[in-house]
Design a protein around this nucleic acid. Structure first.
Length: 297
DNA sequence: ACCCAGGCGACGA
DNA sequence: TCGTCGCATGGG
């Protein structure tokens, strides 16, 4: 008998910080509703997360009966099978990496679904995170399926494969529009096949992903890390390049061996946070200067 | 108003 | 195989 009461799924957080994990630039599918509530969607599941301290609940936003596979889906999505507390402790053996981790030890590298990760990071190139989220939202609203108030699935590849860049103009994705379409076409016609990628060594999977116009090493690596579970892969964006030259001239610390991509997420977040602080300091300094000038005149 | 963003493709040396 | 440039757009 189907469960129409929609009892929430309860998962143990195991030290995860939902807020930082959902908004540290790896996913563009969540929004914060209250201090403890988040609304988002992954695959077919549009849900509300409620932070309850040591655990969190996952409630479907749709009226559909609970899918028996959903608990396993979210356990995989939040990577709750990985012993993060042990990993974090290991990372902390390295002085600088430890400093990055201590700022946000609850960050988790998610395992998101393939096509939305691919398109999300194609859109991410030469773009700001808030704007990426906006474009992804418009893509969902225009071509996805409504599952609840304001919540849409990510369109399937075959739904986008037949479009033209002109069709996508309302997204305001700029030069990335044709990249989105090429990715959709190559996924639809099997040139890039998720199941096959999953069976390939990372180097070969990366090469396959790069067959898509608009997918280079960085975007491919984001797909390998954030969707295909290759935790050794380090996407090298401007922030990480800066971090490596400034703070890790000898490369990724040995304590991150086998988990370099996860270490990357802590470093990436730390770098951006440092930047936010310095930008704020500059503003404070310049407004103080202005204040002085004004007080003199 | 201006700088630049989780890069990539095209092009020339 | 390198370095350089243009790209669409708008958030901060």
């Amino acid at each position: 008998m189907a469960d129409f009461t929609n009892t929430p799924i309860i998962l143990q957080k195991q030290g995860m910080d939902l807020q930082t994990t959902l908004f540290c630039g790896q996913s563009f599918s969540w929004r914060q509703e209250t201090a403890t509530n988040y609304i988002g969607i992954a695959g077919p599941y549009g849900v509300r997360l409620v932070d309850q301290g040591l655990q969190f609940s996952i409630s479907n936003l749709s009226e559909e009966p609970v899918d028996p596979e959903e608990k396993a889906f979210w356990t995989h999505y939040f990577a709750l099978d990985i012993d993060y507390p042990a990993l974090v402790e290991k990372f902390c053996q390295h002085k600088i990496l430890g400093r990055c981790v201590e700022k946000a030890p609850g960050i988790r590298v998610l395992r998101q679904t393939f096509f939305e990760t691919l398109i999300g990071f194609i859109i991410s190139q030469n773009n700001h995170i808030p704007r990426i989220t906006g474009i992804v939202n418009r893509l969902r609203e225009e071509y996805g399926t409504l599952v609840a108030q304001g919540i849409y699935t990510f369109p399937r590849a075959d739904q986008l494969a037949c479009l033209t860049p002109e069709d996508l103009a309302p997204l305001r994705a700029g030069f990335r529009a044709r990249y989105i379409i090429d990715a959709a076409q190559k996924v639809t016609d099997g040139t890039v096949d998720e199941a096959r990628l999953r069976g390939l060594p990372v180097e070969e999977a990366r090469k396959e992903l790069c067959r898509i116009t608009g997918v280079g090493t960085k975007v491919a690596d984001c797909v390998l890390l954030y969707s295909l579970g290759h935790n050794t892969v380090v996407p090298m964006d401007v922030w990480m390049k800066r971090a490596m030259t400034q703070h890790f001239p000898k490369g990724m610390p040995r304590v991150a061996k086998g988990n370099e991509g996860i270490a990357q997420q802590f470093i990436f977040h730390w770098m951006r946070q440092q930047n936010d602080i310095s930008v704020k300091d500059k503003k404070t300094a310049s407004s103080a200067t202005k204040g002085k000038k004004n007080s003199k005149t």
